[in-house]
Write a protein that binds this DNA or RNA. Sequence first.
DNA 1: AAACCCAATGTTAGCGCTAACGATGCGGTG
DNA 2: CACCGCATCGTTAGCGCTAACATTGGGTTT
Lengths: 346, 346
Amino acid sequence: MSGDPAVTDATGVPTMFDVARRAGVSHQTVSRVLNDLPGVAAATRERVRAAMAELNYAPSPTARAMAGRRSGSIGLIQAGRPDYGPSSAALGFNEAARAAGYAVSQASMRTLDADALTQAVHRLVLQRVEAIVLISGEREGVEVLGGIDAGVPLVVVASEAAPGLHRVSFDQFAGARLATEHLIALGHRRIVHVSGPADSMDAAERRRGFAAALAEHGLEQREPIVGDWLPASGYAAGRRIIDDGWAGAAFIGNDHMALGVLRACAEAGVPVPGALSVVGFDDIPEAAYFTPPLTTMRQDFDSLGRDVMATVVEVLRDEASATDRTSRVPDLVVRGSAAAVRTRSA
Amino acid sequence: MSGDPAVTDATGVPTMFDVARRAGVSHQTVSRVLNDLPGVAAATRERVRAAMAELNYAPSPTARAMAGRRSGSIGLIQAGRPDYGPSSAALGFNEAARAAGYAVSQASMRTLDADALTQAVHRLVLQRVEAIVLISGEREGVEVLGGIDAGVPLVVVASEAAPGLHRVSFDQFAGARLATEHLIALGHRRIVHVSGPADSMDAAERRRGFAAALAEHGLEQREPIVGDWLPASGYAAGRRIIDDGWAGAAFIGNDHMALGVLRACAEAGVPVPGALSVVGFDDIPEAAYFTPPLTTMRQDFDSLGRDVMATVVEVLRDEASATDRTSRVPDLVVRGSAAAVRTRSA
DNA sequence: AAACCCAATGTTAGCGCTAACGATGCGGTG
DNA sequence: CACCGCATCGTTAGCGCTAACATTGGGTTT
């Protein structure tokens, strides 16, 4: 692998000059071939290509970044718990980035705080990333990013408008409305919502969607119970719902909390969906095996990640003005946790 | 933010020369201060430090990498599904890396294949990463990496020996033995194991640990049922266990499959832990809210990630020979899914 | 006091690439 | 046939840093 006599570099990695010498041209011509620039005769181009192949040459991203043009890398900041959703989206993004020829410099942080985020952005800028992507549900992240002049395009996954930033997201509002309408269609009239935390944009949108569906059908609105996305808070919410005794159906902000609700029902002997119909959100891999299997809203996080990368490419290509892709609507996946009213008396 | 008159650079980012001019020294002295090299008078050192602070100077990682010494970045390859374990470990690693002053260049791939992995390594090497970390449970990943002369230290998270590589892992063998012994201590004599796929090193180690515990206590060994870590395969395994009717307890390779087993039992009306005791592995956040709450083996993935980074730092510091850290043993977390034999007749 | 040493600094030359400009040589125009 | 123009290529100068060497000036040695 190393020690090739045609290679001058001490590390054994061929440089542009090695290719140039081998092809009998100047290094600049090699550069032109590499970047598909015009002004190279077809025959020469081929000769250079052959030399590159023979030496197994690959340009140094570092040197390219130094020389000023594209660095070929993109910064990815992931803030928050390593949940299924964000992790999948990050994975999809990562694969798409590599497929597009980009490297990904990742900065993850378990909890989002303004200073850490700002620092992370600056570090990435120093690394000459061509764009920075933020995957985080918290509103604060978007606000912080909106106030930074990074000098490179910023793309966020955010379900609320992000002034000055490029945005990609699922339509959480529509998803929540569909979920709620499913319960309404099953004949439920007293529906409660367990929402995610106040600082979550997804939670806010789902809450809006829930409220909109109820309003459209003239149903009574109760103040949602606020959780923190974790099963424990869902469990607590479940107990409250049971003790309260009002609701016949519940739209839960995410599958984790829905699991907590199911657990609370199981403990209290409340049959699901007999006495309480439950719909979740996300469709995590476990959802189909809950007891009972969870009816929920599926989000294709993987393709979300790909969409993010597509946006990056687009923005980088034509320096476009603020993009806003909120196209995808989550799909309803019907399983056993929500049923029609009075099923049992049939 | 930009346009500082003391800064020469067109992009507005101060360079070493800006600092040098401001401090009235040469750029090389600035470099010396930056790298804590000797041969700089204390007073000068202070003056340079002040100038750096005033200009908000930060060295360019790109230029540093170019100039040959450390690049300040580490490559992270994550292969496989974005499950809770690997995602958490990657997060812990990422945070630890940043804390240690390193950037992380991440290459994720949903499925591991030799070519993709090899390519990823080469890309990272071109980016001049100082070390490469692989987080993937599959044996093939370790084998492929073992056969590559990357020129930089390679660190893997692997529960089997990795010749020529630095290794970090939990002691899966000990963990599985503890889990099995817990069931034995509860009085169980007919225990079955549902293992992960054959290409998983964790699965193999857990299987060994399970077999060792049974052997020690002279219990009958049945061939483990092989799953693929996903709930669906756990469900299938659960059905087989129930149909078979032999086992009174089951040690399941991970929590996801355990969920499938619980689901199968719930459907078949087999009480857990009444008729079948179940122990899982991983302690995913959902496990405490399964029905019944799952007794399982907790692994602190976050600190695993930190351990990996610690190993990287260590290896980078003294070019040490192959490291091997298999210290941590998973902890038993007792919940409701495993009970003593004949509990019901009490 | 001449020679010397060493701490403290400055100067120069790259790392591998891109960007800007120069230098060829060929065909076509008046 | 002198002239221009354009494709095709080469040369030079950086990007911001580190590494190796050159330079200074005070304090020691002989």
